[in-house]
Design a protein around this nucleic acid. Sequence first.
DNA 1: CCGAATCCTGAGAGCGCTCTCGGTATCGAA
DNA 2: TTCGATACCGAGAGCGCTCTCAGGATTCGG
Lengths: 342, 342
Amino acid sequence: MSGIEDVALRAGVSKATVSRALSGRGYVSSVTRNKVENAASELGYVVSSNASSLVTGRTNNVGVIIPVINQWFFGSIIEGVERALIERGYDLMLYNLTKNTEARSRVFEYFLVRKRVDAIIAVTLEISPDEAASLLALGKPIAGIGGPLAGIPTLSIDDVAAARLATEHLIALGHRNIMHVGGDSAELMDFHVHSKRLQGFMDALGAAGLPFSDESYVATHFDIPGGYAAGKQILGDPRRRPTAIFAAADEVAIGVILAARELGISVPDDLSVIGIDNHPLADLFGLTSIAQKPAKQGEQAVDLVIRQLETAGWTPPNIHTTVPAQLVMRSSTSAPRAGAPR
Amino acid sequence: MSGIEDVALRAGVSKATVSRALSGRGYVSSVTRNKVENAASELGYVVSSNASSLVTGRTNNVGVIIPVINQWFFGSIIEGVERALIERGYDLMLYNLTKNTEARSRVFEYFLVRKRVDAIIAVTLEISPDEAASLLALGKPIAGIGGPLAGIPTLSIDDVAAARLATEHLIALGHRNIMHVGGDSAELMDFHVHSKRLQGFMDALGAAGLPFSDESYVATHFDIPGGYAAGKQILGDPRRRPTAIFAAADEVAIGVILAARELGISVPDDLSVIGIDNHPLADLFGLTSIAQKPAKQGEQAVDLVIRQLETAGWTPPNIHTTVPAQLVMRSSTSAPRAGAPR
DNA sequence: CCGAATCCTGAGAGCGCTCTCGGTATCGAA
DNA sequence: TTCGATACCGAGAGCGCTCTCAGGATTCGG
């Protein structure tokens, strides 16, 4: 591996000039720049990012902490973040922070601290005050997806509003007997998503003068099998059956639809179903949904940290930014059957 | 940020001793080690990995190149790789290498080369000879998932054998009219998976003396909607309808099942369906499948590169390793109906 | 035509570590 | 006692860059 010295020699200039020519910082005549570039490519030279980081203090790495990878929402975020980072010349260091406390503390105490990243993007991170403090103490730009999170700029859809929007859609269609299938709030990785979506559901019911009881709500796993199980449970008893279900996520909604189909319950004739996310499978199931774009949220989070990094003194304007979420109507929702129980 | 000097001062020892104490290399008395550790934690000191990398030449980073993130197979690999890397003290740098040639060449020419990673794990990477050469030229340990790939140790299930196993299962049940729904071989990211699974299908048919024609095979997108579309197409015409379908992946198989349900075709009574992967949703759909464990493959790939990194002179024994794949029987396959068309 | 501003380049210090090398202390075997 | 092996520690070189600083060349307005 050839070093900067070799390039300098070959180009007949000094190390300093090579550095300037290749990094684009400082004055270099175009003639010299060409010489240097030629020499560099002839030697297959490429700057050692370690050496350069050592003096500049910049690593050109951004750490991403994420609780799950293998789920549409999270996978999309990673894709968005990666794309945006590479485009700007940064590398992505991935930390999959599960509930596992051992690996967890390891990441916090060991990896993130080692001056390996310039900034951190934390995705739906449910962190303890200690952990938050240690993140902040790094003095590095941080952005969160989810939130709000004390002291950290975050962005997400307005979960309460989205849930209310979904519920209101059902109410507007004429439904009066609506149930909610949400996430299990015992699950760590939720950033209070579950409780907020439940809240929005309750708000909408309340505003419409509809009753809410324990019977109006079922918690389950946040995936298709979870929705399926909940669907089977809810729809099993014909007399209790609601005319509409608001699922807290499209995966859950799809599970509900599958359960309904299996029970011979027609969607939307016998049962309307709405979810949140606008998952790629929503189309296949004709699922009405509240759309959000996690990949875009990832890009925005990158913006947030990179801007802090590159424009001195800039700090994010709001502590929490709400990104848009809109109703996408498909065929899983309609007015309840005329003779439906109320 | 305090440096090693500060710790040395506070502990009353030299920089060299601090380095030894903290890195665990070389002789340090336990008394001294304690002093150093205390001083370090009191100061909140943590070694600069850049400075250390600069002299050791090791970054403790492993680059992972992967074509997709948001799919079960790939997401699981990332999870497995990440877990295994963190456990061993390495960080994961993620490069999502799509077909997009711009970002692609960027990763190859710019990122990977910059001495930022100690090793590379390439997942189902369909690379050009040039790209392969540039990877090898880095002189860094590489492992691939998929393959085989010239000059690079790889690991994967035996796709031909897995496909044959799936097909043989159908044949053994008595099916004679079997179709295959596979991936579109025009898609870049496939490492010839599609053609290999088709091959295994053909092999099995041939061995059983069953005919293969253009009609025996449909290519589609490698996901649930793709399987659904293919299913609709295949199952639409009752007279052409096979008694069994071998789908090249569980997502595709699930799509086929959904299509069948919609057409009122009973699985497995009217149609047997088998896939490959043992996807988490396979259970929900009762899908018989050939199981593989991508997360484990990820861990094995990590093993491969880390061992090369840490045990001098060690090189991977085989150029390509086959990992096991087994039949998992569920309820989507059975003997064909007695009066079924042959 | 002169001084100031601008452009271009090189010498060399130093980023924060690790590692070699040499020196001292300890200890068991000869 | 002597000697070699082993344990422990410090001084200082150097990893491969970037950046400051100083100096020379060039341009330009007055």
